[in-house]
Computed example of a mutant assay.
Amino acid sequence: MEKTRISKLMAERGLCSRREADSYIERGWVRVDGVVVAELGSKAYPDQQITLERPALQRQTARVTILLNKPVGYVSAQAEKGYRPAVSLIQAASRYRGDRAPLRFDPSHLRGLAPAGRLDIDSQGLLVLTQDGRVARQLIGDDSEVDKEYLVRVQGRIASDGLALLNHGLELDGKPLRRAQVEWLNRDQLRFVLHEGKKRQIRRMCELVGLKVVGLKRVRMGKVALGDLPQGQWRYLRKGERFA
């Protein structure tokens, strides 16, 4: 059995991101089998116990995750081509009045807040922004098992085997896609449930079977649904609320 960098093991176990792990190690907030580790690049065996000191746990507890109903016209991450980033909508005035989280909005909640998964500029719906590397890894890590649900309005005439191909059998960028769940809700709307998130995946999938997407809305990520959150408004992820 070979040793692995402790920061990598911590990320794989969902304790934090690798960047956060390095920060905690530098501060002496990480123990391996009860022994404090303070040297970056230190390694451990995969079966060793890794624990965090109280300051690291407190720092994680203070980090927020925000759910936003992103409108069309906003980009998920950095501003581009004159368009505003979705994070600019996170203001005290745009907080959902029905938010039951006990937190009071503070400008520090915007520090390091980043989208966990893209949502195209011409798409709307649930966008998760978080300060917590554990949440980001759970949603967009290579081994993520969190599914995402979308409502998709389309135009055009679908190929005879198009629905079957949308469920399984298409390739993008030379690689086969994971099995999806796709069904008609009415004559011009499809419901997609995906287990991956390639760039503009649904639009490209639809094009391959003769359809054009004219409206796309993400309504769920794992166990967290958009619900009645109004467009352009946001709320905090509540304590005890989990994506998986």
Rank of each mutant, 00 (worst) to 15 (best):
V182N: 00
G156E: 05
G112F: 11
Q189Y: 09
K8I: 11
R100K: 13
R187V: 14
G215I: 13
V209G: 07
Q60C: 10
V213A: 00
K175Q: 13
L126A: 08
T61F: 08
L190H: 01
D122S: 06
S94Y: 09
P71A: 00
G240A: 09
N186T: 11
Y24A: 03
K70I: 01
R84M: 15
L172M: 02
R220K: 07
L139F: 03
R59T: 13
R153I: 09
N186H: 09
Y236L: 10
L226N: 01
Q49K: 15
E196W: 04
I121Q: 15
R238P: 07
P230L: 08
V135W: 06
Q48E: 14
A62G: 12
N69M: 09
E39Y: 15
K198S: 01
G28A: 05
V152T: 08
C16T: 10
W29R: 05
V37K: 04
W184V: 11
Y150S: 06
A244D: 13
K70E: 00
A159F: 04
Q181V: 13
D188A: 06
R153W: 15
G133K: 10
D228S: 12
V219T: 13
D99S: 03
A164W: 01
Q60L: 14
W29F: 06
R203C: 02
S7Q: 15
V128R: 03
S42L: 05
R100Y: 14
V37C: 02
R235C: 11
T130K: 00
R59P: 06
G141H: 08
E145I: 13
L126P: 00
G227P: 06
P230H: 06
L229V: 05
D142W: 06
V146P: 03
S17P: 08
A11D: 02
L172G: 02
H168E: 14
E145N: 15
E80I: 02
L57E: 10
R220P: 09
V32H: 06
S7C: 10
L177T: 10
L57K: 09
Q181M: 10
D147R: 11
K3H: 12
Q231W: 14
G210I: 15
A92G: 03
E207D: 15
G117I: 07
A244I: 12
T130V: 04
